[in-house]
Design a protein around this nucleic acid. Structure first.
Lengths: 226, 226
DNA sequence: CGCTCTATTGATAAACCTCAAATACAGTGG
DNA sequence: CCACTGTATTTGAGGTTTATCAATAGAGCG
């Protein structure tokens, strides 16, 4: 049951045997909460896949302000782009909660791409999909109000990391107001205020770094019409 | 001298002969100002390269508000991603000024990728580079103020489309206040006000859909420190 | 229990948008 | 060449959204 990552899009079109071999050719790393996987500017050494847990990929400006580009879930990849390009990481990655990953260094991934055409294709598709996501988020950041963006963020995270609980759907990792702010391009104060209102509305429940969505439909309607 | 597009990154590692053949296998299209190349949601039929002129690639939301994702200059590609994915265009593309392009339909580009490994690699690199650009712009949109973003926009456009003139560097295509607004995530009014100030400062000169940058350095300093 | 980190809330200010009106500009056809 | 027309642009007033700052409360951990 902890082999969900073997269904990764990276392995489409490969036999279980091939997958095993590929997995064996990587190296495993384990992290606790908030361990830094690599810094922005480090030379790209490897490509990573999350086995369990989660990575936060963000970009920092000169003042150290953060914009979260992407949360990397089970079976998803981190650093694919810079690893393929062979440049420095343009982003920063850290674990969110206890996290286990496989890494393949550049030489290995290059070899694997040559041996398995499917790997190349899958990598390409994964990158292209991410590009589409980022474009969509760029549009939203450009044209929507803060509250609308926060609603969309919660719905996205619910979609990808939601855990059904009796009282609603829990976003199943430590997620602070500051994280949501960095994810939506606002401040933790505005996030806090907004979540307070939604809690009063009965749309969500929230604690310290924990958010449960009670009424996804209300959020959806809000995100579309607000 | 109108063969600048033959230096496109798409052709890296190919002989002039091979390039000729590839170019011959495409179809040429010519557009006037503001002709629509494809709509958001259309099925992706082809991949395009700009021969001369320019394309504006943007994304629209349900209300029809626009966010400009990218200006495509001579030798650069449009629709690469959706063409590779074989999905619908997630964006909208129109010509900016008189524009000439080459198109390769999906079958052709697939064949070319199989015949020339370099094409595949180049395409990948082009897409990856664009991804990096978008990430950077996402960060800026997320963490910077409007005026700072406008400054960066002018500098970027100057970089890629600047034409040296006695009085300064002209951004060499019809660029309205509304365009700059859609490029930076603000309104045409705010852009207009900002440009007015900068004109008084002597940093730029501007007319109807025309902007000349007099003092790039001042803008640069402003973009970094403001 | 005390410490540290996170979250809440209020007051205030700044940034930015919206709307309206006036003005400038480029192209068109007489 | 000029008036006309349709855009693009400017500018102001006023309001909304959102950030900033400060102070307090709460949660979790050793």
């Amino acid at each position: 049951m902890d082999d969900l990552y073997k269904d990764s899009k990276l392995f489409f079109g490969l036999t279980p045997d091939q997958c095993e071999k590929i997995i064996d050719s990587g190296f495993i790393q384990k992290f606790d909460h908030k361990s830094i996987l690599f810094h922005q500017g480090d030379p790209a050494r490897a490509l990573y896949m999350v086995i369990n847990g989660r990575l936060k990929v963000s970009k920092l400006n000169e003042e150290g302000e953060e914009a979260i580009i992407h949360y990397v879930n089970e079976g998803e990849l981190a650093a694919a782009i810079s690893c393929l390009q062979g440049k420095n990481y343009p982003v920063f990655a850290e674990s969110v909660g206890k996290t286990e990953i496989i890494g393949w260094d550049r030489d290995t991934i290059t070899r694997l791409m040559n041996e398995h055409a499917a790997i190349s294709m899958n990598l390409l598709n994964i990158v292209l999909e991410r590009f589409g996501d980022l474009q969509q988020r760029f549009l939203e950041l450009s044209n929507e109000r803060v509250e609308q963006r926060i609603a969309r963020a919660l719905l996205r995270l619910m979609q990808s990391c939601g855990l059904k609980k009796p009282e609603g759907i829990l976003i199943d990792f430590p997620l602070s107001r500051q994280d949501i702010a960095a994810f939506t391009g606002t401040t933790l104060f505005t996030v806090s205020r907004t979540l307070s209102i939604w809690t009063k509305n009965g749309w969500i429940k929230s604690g310290r770094e924990r958010i449960t969505i009670i009424d996804p439909h209300a959020l959806m309607v809000f995100a579309e019409n607000a």
